[in-house]
Amino acid sequence: MEDLNRLKVVLVEKKKTSKWLAEELGKTPSTVSKWCTNVSQPDLQTLHCIAVLLNVDVRSLLVPNDIHAFQ
């Protein structure tokens, strides 16, 4: 499976833990862990909330893709 988000990297850059994020979002630590390891992905609304909490552009949480690969 390909990585779709950069959540783990951004948390490190912002000196925050996945436990902190789980508490802020009212999610279980195991849910946030799955997001950080790209086992599953947060929905778009949650992704927006994460960006607000971390004070980053939501796009910085996503792995850029090569749009030309689909043409």
Results as ranks from 00 to 15, higher is better:
W35N: 01
V9Q: 07
E23C: 06
I50H: 10
W35T: 01
P64I: 13
K8I: 00
D43L: 04
Q45F: 06
K27T: 01
L11S: 07
Q41G: 00
L54S: 01
W20I: 05
D57C: 08
K8M: 01
V63F: 02
L62P: 04
D3V: 07
S40C: 02
Q71A: 15
L53H: 05
N55K: 06
T28A: 15
V39P: 05
V10Q: 03
R6F: 01
W20Q: 10
Q41A: 06
L61S: 05
T37W: 00
A69S: 14
V10K: 08
L44S: 11
R6I: 03
E2I: 12
Q71C: 11
P42F: 09
K19H: 14
Q71L: 10
L47M: 09
V9K: 06
L21M: 08
V9L: 11
L54W: 05
K27R: 06
S30D: 15
C49F: 07
E23R: 14
Q45N: 07
P29R: 14
L7C: 06
L61G: 03
L54M: 04
V10R: 06
K27V: 00
Q45K: 03
Q41R: 12
D66N: 14
A69V: 03
T17S: 13
K8Y: 07
K8Q: 08
T46D: 07
V58L: 08
N55D: 14
W35A: 00
V63D: 01
N38C: 00
A22Q: 09
N5L: 13
L53M: 10
S40P: 02
A51E: 01
L44R: 12
N55C: 02
Q71F: 14
V63Y: 03
R59D: 02
E23T: 15
L62Q: 02
L47G: 02
R59W: 01
A22W: 13
N65A: 13
A22R: 10
K19V: 13
V10T: 09
S33Q: 09
T37Y: 07
L47V: 04
P42T: 07
C49M: 08
V9G: 06
T46V: 10
K19W: 09
E24L: 12
R6G: 01
H68N: 13
T17Y: 09
C49D: 09
D3F: 11
S18A: 12
I67R: 13
V52H: 08
L44W: 12
S60H: 13
A51D: 00
K16N: 10
W35D: 04
I50A: 07
K34I: 05
L61P: 03
T37D: 07
V52G: 08
L21E: 02
L7F: 05
L7K: 00
L53Q: 03
K15W: 00
H68D: 11
H68K: 15
N38H: 03
T17L: 10
V9C: 07
K19R: 15
T28F: 12
K15E: 10
K16C: 01
R59K: 15
K14T: 11
V32P: 04
T46G: 04
I67L: 12
H48W: 09
T46K: 02
K8N: 10
L62Y: 07
I50G: 03
V12E: 08
P29M: 08
R59L: 05
L47W: 00
D3L: 13
S33A: 13
W35L: 03
K34A: 13
H48T: 08
S60A: 09
D66T: 13
